[in-house]
Design a protein around this nucleic acid. Sequence first.
DNA 1: CAAGCGTGTGTATGCTTATGCAGCTGATCA
DNA 2: TGATCAGCTGCATAAGCATACACACGCTTG
Lengths: 152, 152
Amino acid sequence: MLSKRQRQHLIRDVVTASRVGTQSGLVRALRDLGCDVTQATISRDLRELGVERKRDEKGGFRYVLGTAEERRDPEVACSRMLEEFSTAVLAARNIVLVKSEPGTAPGMGRVIDELGHPDVLGCVAGDDTVLVVTTDDAAARAVADYFIGLGG
Amino acid sequence: MLSKRQRQHLIRDVVTASRVGTQSGLVRALRDLGCDVTQATISRDLRELGVERKRDEKGGFRYVLGTAEERRDPEVACSRMLEEFSTAVLAARNIVLVKSEPGTAPGMGRVIDELGHPDVLGCVAGDDTVLVVTTDDAAARAVADYFIGLGG
DNA sequence: CAAGCGTGTGTATGCTTATGCAGCTGATCA
DNA sequence: TGATCAGCTGCATAAGCATACACACGCTTG
């Protein structure tokens, strides 16, 4: 008998590697890998792992690992993104410019949108720059400071 | 009897505004709003709308609108958003202004971004307005016409 | 008009997932 | 040691969702 932790790890692997879309399918897959367990347990495991069931492109179902972003508080997500990828945060007039590693700006823009910050009107992400438009000049400075505080 | 389109619009509203987590709950909510329909139809509607069922923070379920990038065809997504939520599309210089129902602009902006239209440099979404910046004046007119064709 | 087709819907039902309950196991503590 | 408790699991079943089928309606075409 595998431990709960091992089993859940296995579930992650199976879900990542194959296209299983039902819990009974998962039960079978796990049995083939030497882990005998029932659907009820799988149900609870999937919940604990944050695995989601989505439609795939052909209309069938598929379990997928929840993305990091979906699991987190938006502010935490934003904080991590800023810590990891931002290279500069500047305020200019009512615009905040967030410079980031090449290719990371769209994701950065997304988490910034997710924040739902009241002073942020919206943002435009290029490849390595996010332009955040705020309500006014003071708001831009405040938002920039906020981003810097978050890890930018 | 409401049209399918109206009903689906209503479903979006209900899903956005309240925390309904079952299809029968949705059936009740819609009945209260004067739309009599069965669970089977809701099931099909949710699929067509790309609505997802997720755990909320307290362990219960909740339906949520899928994000733009999770939908298959960006043009279809954009078209739906425009049809349902836009109230005006205007071109001014190299800017296209898309006016929309209050609160819908951020979503609208996202699907417009998703389009990856070559003449669109980026956009900024407020609460009920999306500002789309295009390469030049002619592009703005072309893009505005394109949006109008899509259902704006 | 009639036939044929596509779309939308409800009904009934099957499929899938969630969960109450009880039993087991291992840890802790007096 | 025995009592107690928490965590994990399976079983049985409830809750919830998807869909095959049949029918109705509107459109098109000959």
